[in-house]
Amino acid sequence: MRVLVTGFGPFGNCKVNASWEVVKVLAEEGLGEDHSLEIDEIPVVYEAVQDRAPLLWSEKKPDLTVHVGVSPYDSVTFEQYGRNFGYSKPDILGRFPNMECCVPDGPDCIRSRLDMDLVQLNIKARGISVETCISDDAGRYLCDFLYFLSLSLGQGPVAFVHIPSLDKEYSCMELAKALRLIILAMIDQLVEKATV
């Protein structure tokens, strides 16, 4: 399976974005011989996301895309929905998306095709070492913006995982190992669906 994993670049007081650091460590670990893994760093800029997201799908042709962002919370969070409207917080260039929305005339929200409850059950059975939870609101900033845009392209399964910053409880390696288990659980779910 071809897997694309993205992380974000620096923003605000976050000079080193935990999401990109964790994604880079994941790339060193890999997903095993059966799966190829490509990574990409996304700037915290609305216009760059709008340009980059469609290119990632057309260039990389992933079977699964997992976007990773950093959040202020202490747990690893699986985002169930991407939202189209309400982007009133400026990006690192001080800009907003047109009409504060992702896709004009698009739906209010899109749910991931992946069942995050099943992902959570799967990783708990594998003995994941970090706290996890499921969220219905990815935050109306670049994380949510990228997630909704990726989901709206309809090119394949998409997930968004928020991780804590590196000054919280978990190390970069612990988060990378957890992300690896999460992605393998998502792959298992997709393989199972394909064989039903």
Results as ranks from 00 to 15, higher is better:
C101L: 14
C102D: 08
A194H: 12
K124S: 05
E38F: 12
K24G: 08
G32C: 07
V119Y: 04
I39R: 11
V45R: 12
E28C: 03
H35W: 02
G32T: 09
R83G: 14
D51N: 14
D34V: 09
A18S: 12
F148Q: 01
H35R: 01
G32H: 07
D136P: 00
E100N: 13
S150E: 01
T65V: 14
Y46E: 00
L142R: 03
D51K: 15
G156V: 07
K61W: 07
V25W: 05
V103L: 13
R113S: 15
V44D: 08
D108W: 02
G30L: 04
Y46W: 01
A125Q: 12
I182A: 06
S150C: 04
I187C: 05
T65P: 07
E29I: 15
L190N: 07
G12M: 01
L149V: 04
D144Q: 07
F85E: 08
R95Y: 08
W57S: 07
Q120I: 09
Y81D: 02
K89T: 13
P54W: 12
K177R: 13
R95T: 13
L149N: 04
Q50H: 11
G154A: 03
P62E: 07
L93T: 13
W20V: 02
E33W: 01
W57C: 08
D91N: 03
F78P: 10
M116R: 05
I39M: 07
V161P: 08
Q189W: 06
Q120T: 11
Y87N: 09
G86H: 11
L149T: 05
L93W: 04
N13R: 15
F145A: 00
N84K: 00
D167W: 04
